[in-house]
Design a protein around this nucleic acid. Structure first.
Lengths: 249, 249
DNA sequence: TAATAAAATTAGTCAAGTCTAATTTATTTC
DNA sequence: GAAATAAATTAGACTTGACTAATTTTATTA
């Protein structure tokens, strides 16, 4: 009866049910849940910093309470991934290290992907990597990793497309700018009367604009172009693509 | 008491707790769980195919049982995302459509990313998109989308790096080839005696090899290079990077 | 070393999401 | 239109992974 129930659950979602990963070699037994993967990864990280890891440390790192950690450790111990005795310190088994490394590898290149390629700031890049790392199949993982390696080589080779990409990623809508920001106009979206009107107002490719006053949700936005003062509605500002000068995130 | 508990849960994982997303505009109320997002997306997809969607259809699509669907629909109804009466048909509300579209958009460019850029086959690309779409922040989402657009434009422009990337992605280790496959040797990893030995055996960049016999996990691999028959150990084959001729996945 | 403080565990609860079995409502079919 | 079939719902159970409160063990300190 019990066994049957488990079998039913395994049916969920075709292909790789749950959000579990298929590890390269490791583990013929049930795959780790994203959650347990997270424990493994973080224990591994803590072990790199301090040589003694306690329940409290894990709880703090994961921002959860100690009893949750205890429960998790007991499960991970059963799976043979951690060395751990009641009230004792936590270590990873050989198998556990493999698992943790495999996850950490994903984490690393995902972080690089978001940070280096998509120009996101470190913190956000890390956060995204943490979320996605548990959901990448080994094939996708592999390809992603190759892609990141490829990108880095292209960067070393000084390939021009890298710069083109950076430019594209820096672009924003005028309506996304904050008060005080300066930006260069890249292009005006759409066509017809609206575009014409904007062009007539002086919004032309290459011009530098300066956002003087902008209270989000409150029309209009006040800006200056070459010493002219203008105010446009958020809706209009939405179809003006600009590249902020300075700033980063 | 109850409220406090919820507050505690919200503490989990700094930044965006849970694996929930921050939608662009929509929803001041609690964000949807990845699961509920999945329901929304799939209901939306079903509605595009048939104009009447029943509990049974959703259950079938998600590969789960009907009672689970009923429960989910009740929750989604409470959140004002679906129009649904007991024993009746399912429709999305205006708000529901927005949510579904926003998810579907992520799904689309993620699929393109895996399929077009990383050259994965359609099914795997879809699967990965399904898993990741619920975990992308709006910023990452935005950048990813721009990147995919950028790639497509570069492709149209016939930029060379696209070809270089394709080449890199096609590369495999000799040990990953299947029986009968042919491949071109791209490079030999490592250095020292092993590499020297392999070069002496005839493994040189540009040569075409043909895998004659390979029972995974069973050494050795039998291959031919220019009518010479050779057999090498899996371990050695591991450090030979090749590009398969023909095939695709 | 006895007393206190800190850390960890157990016990019991909760919520989300799934399931089966039994029941109710709709739809077909003769 | 009544009987049979199909679809949907309710009720109750289970798993995972959190939590609090209470207890136990270990570490620290006077």
């Amino acid at each position: 009866m019990h066994k049957v129930y488990v079998t039913m659950k395994m049916r969920r979602r075709q292909g790789n049910p749950f959000n579990f990963n298929d590890y390269p070699d490791t583990s013929m037994d049930t795959p780790l849940s994203p959650n347990m993967e997270d424990y493994m990864e973080n224990i591994s990280m803590l072990l790199k910093e301090h040589d003694v890891v306690r329940v409290k440390d894990i709880a703090k790192k994961l921002n959860i309470r100690m009893p949750s950690v205890t429960a998790a450790l007991q499960k991970l111990k059963e799976k043979g991934l951690v060395d751990y005795e009641k009230y004792g310190h936590v270590q990873l088994t050989t198998k556990g290290k493999e698992v943790a490394d495999s996850i950490y590898e994903k984490h690393s290149f995902l972080t690089e992907f978001f940070k280096e390629i998509l120009s996101m700031n470190t913190q956000e890049a890390e956060e995204q990597a943490c979320k996605l790392e548990h959901h990448l199949s080994s094939n996708a993982s592999n390809r992603m990793q190759r892609f990141v390696e490829f990108y880095k080589q292209e960067q070393l080779d000084g390939q021009q497309w890298i710069n083109r990409l950076d430019s594209v990623l820096e672009e924003k809508r005028l309506s996304e700018l904050k008060e005080g920001q300066k930006a260069e106009i890249i292009r005006i979206l759409g066509s017809g009367p609206l575009k014409k009107r904007l062009l007539e107002m002086g919004f032309r490719k290459g011009e530098i604009i300066h956002v003087l006053k902008y209270a989000p949700l409150k029309d209009p936005i006040e800006i200056s172009i070459k010493d002219f003062l203008l105010s446009i509605r958020v809706e209009e500002a939405h179809s003006i693509i600009v590249k902020p000068l300075g700033s980063h995130d």
